[in-house]
């Protein structure tokens, strides 16, 4: 028995070894390097290797950093909310209202067949000064001159990312809806709920895990995204990742870049935990 257990354990170790090695080398080690870098400082072209809080103090004192982190979290929050709100009805439709579920799931992944960059650019084409939307509105005579508030701001970032992330939200919500026993909905109806009440009191709380998964999958990468804000965000839509990119690139201040990365990771972690806790509590309070 003991021998068997030992071999079970070693089998488990052997199975998880590649993943452990992968995570260790490609996540833990770089993260360690990042932490160490954040306590060094840049002096002209050299790196001063004395450990110091100088970068953190500078970052906290800089109003731009604070502003960018807050804006990043707000934009990421808006993207998350917009995506989940748009994805939920689609997931609901696929889970309950159609028999061609495989076809619909396939259709949803179609945008992924083209590159992420192309999709961001296509939004630029749609929202731009001479873009599809403006030309269309002008052709049918609703506006006389092109709308300028469409592109190069937060709205454009939210719109572009909400579209890009949609499948990531639809899939986890679809899975959590799919798992719900149909008879629960009937039971709620039998106990006096109309369709809306049955949704609020049974379906929605049971899909909280799916909503949380979708939110995290969207919120976290959005905070780190710098391509979309750079392409469609303009100066208003710049996010913390753009600043980090500058530190590692043009500004050539890797220690500050590392500090900003860690600060944004910490704030994302904090906000995400807070959101998960709030959603869980809200889900449990529905009776």
């Amino acid at each position: 028995m003991a021998i068997q257990l030992k071999s079970e354990a070693s089998k488990g170790m052997a199975l998880s070894a590649p993943a452990t090695l992968y995570v260790g080398l490609l996540v833990a080690v770089p993260l360690g390097i990042l932490i160490v870098y954040s306590f060094w400082t840049q002096s002209y072209v050299d790196i001063d290797r004395t450990l110091t809080w100088a970068n953190y103090i500078e970052a906290f004192q800089d109003p731009l950093v604070r502003h960018l982190i807050v804006r990043t979290i707000i934009i990421a929050g808006l993207v998350t909310i917009a995506t989940v709100v748009l994805a939920y009805p689609i997931a609901y439709f696929i889970a309950f209202r159609t028999k061609k579920q495989t076809l619909w799931l396939l259709l949803i992944t179609i945008p992924f067949w083209s590159s992420y960059l192309l999709r961001v650019f296509s939004w630029k084409l749609i929202l731009g000064f001479n873009g599809v939307l403006n030309s269309a509105l002008m052709t049918i005579g609703i506006i006389n001159e092109p709308l300028t508030f469409l592109l190069y701001n937060e709205i454009a970032v939210v719109l572009t990312l909400a579209h890009a992330w949609a499948p990531f939200a639809i899939l986890p919500i679809y899975v959590s809806l799919q798992k719900i026993d149909r008879s629960l909905h009937e039971a709620a109806t039998d106990l006096g709920c109309n369709m809306y009440q049955a949704f609020i009191r049974v379906t929605l709380p049971l899909t909280v895990p799916g909503i949380i998964a979708a939110s995290l999958i969207i919120f976290i990468p959005t905070v780190g995204d710098y391509v979309t804000p750079a392409l469609v965000g303009g100066s208003e839509g710049k996010m913390i990742a753009n600043l980090i990119q500058v530190q590692f690139g043009a500004a050539n201040n890797w220690p500050m870049g590392a500090t900003l990365s860690l600060l944004s990771m910490l704030s994302v972690g904090f906000v995400a935990m807070l959101a998960v806790f709030t959603m869980n509590t809200a889900g449990r309070r529905i009776r």
Binding site: D181, S183, E186, A187, D190, L191, V202, L206, R284, I286
Partner: peptide, 14 residues
């Protein structure tokens, strides 16, 4: 009328 379902349909979140 009220029903006792074959699967009982007990709400798992409550």
């Amino acid at each position: 009328t009220n029903m006792v379902f074959q699967s009982y349909a007990i709400f798992p979140h409550l």
